[in-house]
Simulated assay, not measured.
Amino acid sequence: MKTKIYIDNNKFIAGTTLRDDTAPEHNNMAFHACVDPETVVENRKRLATFLHCSPKDFVCASQTHSANVHKVTLADKGRGAEVGATAIPDTDALYTIEPNVLLCSFTADCVPVIFWNEVNGLVGVIHSGWQGTVKEITLKVFEHLKKEEGCQLSDFHVQLGLALSQEKFEVDEDVYVKFKALGYADDFMYFNEATNKYHIDNQKTVKRQLELAGVPESRITIDRTCTYVSPDGFSYRQDKRAGRHVSFIMKKGN
């Protein structure tokens, strides 16, 4: 199973799957971007074996580029894991305090946000495409965790996974205006006069949202692998039929 592991210790395991030309559908992990759903099921089974868990431990959301967050309970285990229709609807962020639950976020250019709290064991994932970023999903999730879960944001580690680079993320003025309106993304945008396009660094904008929420910069790590350029990456911008990575995290049980 071709993966990149970001953390693996006695408390947590987190990482992302990678594109693999030797695997069925290049190791695609998402039902909504597949040719054959059974291939996705098989790829997920291989991931589960690699992680020493079961597909029934997976929890998946039906991502809609929303700013909605769902607290996962044990009753949610298996949702969206083997049948796409059972996924948690209209949700782009998941978190849990339960052990042995694999939270999943699917991307092919968008920014995956993986986080874990060393003190209380809370873990989560966020899917932040540019639409989620301008809706400030990451900022809102961490404000929610502080207010509703009593988390100290300095207790978190946050990993931003591989995503579309600023060089390859070129947009027209309509998207630029939305980022400009955030009031803190100016340093992460530039205009290319030759192409009349704007270029935006979505990862660094999300990082700024984490900092604004109260997560210390020293606790934030960015995987700068570009999904468009890297052979390990799925890029929707490069190929509309591209598969999806799954970024994942699980709090380990006893």
Score class of each variant (00 low, 15 high):
1 M>R: 02
4 K>T: 13
7 I>M: 07
10 N>L: 12
10 N>R: 12
11 K>G: 02
12 F>G: 07
14 A>N: 04
15 G>V: 07
15 G>P: 04
16 T>K: 01
17 T>A: 10
19 R>K: 15
19 R>E: 03
25 E>S: 12
26 H>D: 15
26 H>E: 15
28 N>W: 05
30 A>W: 01
32 H>V: 05
35 V>S: 12
36 D>E: 11
37 P>Q: 06
38 E>Y: 01
38 E>Q: 09
39 T>L: 03
40 V>G: 05
41 V>Y: 00
43 N>S: 01
44 R>C: 06
45 K>V: 04
47 L>W: 05
48 A>V: 06
49 T>N: 14
50 F>K: 13
52 H>A: 13
54 S>I: 03
55 P>K: 14
55 P>W: 13
57 D>N: 15
63 Q>C: 01
63 Q>Y: 00
63 Q>H: 00
63 Q>T: 06
65 H>L: 08
66 S>Q: 02
67 A>D: 14
67 A>R: 05
68 N>M: 07
69 V>Y: 09
69 V>E: 03
70 H>S: 09
70 H>Q: 07
73 T>R: 06
73 T>G: 11
74 L>V: 13
75 A>P: 00
76 D>P: 03
76 D>S: 08
77 K>V: 04
77 K>W: 08
78 G>I: 05
79 R>V: 05
82 E>K: 09
88 I>H: 08
95 Y>A: 04
95 Y>F: 15
98 E>I: 07
100 N>P: 00
101 V>P: 00
101 V>Q: 04
102 L>T: 09
104 C>N: 10
106 F>K: 05
106 F>A: 02
106 F>Q: 04
111 V>C: 11
112 P>H: 10
116 W>K: 07
117 N>A: 11
119 V>G: 01
120 N>G: 04
120 N>H: 12
120 N>S: 14
121 G>Y: 10
124 G>A: 02
128 S>K: 02
129 G>Q: 02
129 G>S: 15
133 T>F: 07
134 V>C: 07
137 I>F: 07
138 T>S: 15
142 F>V: 02
145 L>P: 06
145 L>K: 11
147 K>Q: 12
153 L>E: 12
155 D>S: 11
157 H>K: 15
158 V>F: 09
159 Q>C: 13
159 Q>Y: 15
160 L>A: 09
161 G>T: 08
165 S>F: 01
175 V>G: 03
175 V>F: 07
175 V>C: 12
175 V>T: 14
176 Y>N: 04
178 K>D: 13
179 F>C: 11
181 A>K: 15
181 A>E: 15
182 L>Y: 09
184 Y>M: 14
185 A>H: 09
189 M>K: 08
189 M>H: 10
190 Y>P: 00
192 N>E: 09
194 A>L: 06
195 T>H: 00
195 T>Q: 01
196 N>S: 13
197 K>M: 10
201 D>M: 06
202 N>W: 00
202 N>I: 11
204 K>I: 00
204 K>S: 06
207 K>T: 07
209 Q>L: 04
210 L>T: 08
216 P>M: 09
217 E>C: 07
218 S>D: 15
218 S>M: 08
221 T>R: 13
221 T>K: 13
222 I>M: 12
223 D>F: 10
224 R>M: 07
227 T>P: 00
229 V>P: 00
230 S>C: 04
232 D>S: 10
235 S>R: 01
238 Q>Y: 09
240 K>H: 10
244 R>C: 06
248 F>Q: 06
250 M>Q: 12
251 K>R: 15
251 K>M: 11
251 K>P: 01
253 G>C: 12
253 G>L: 10
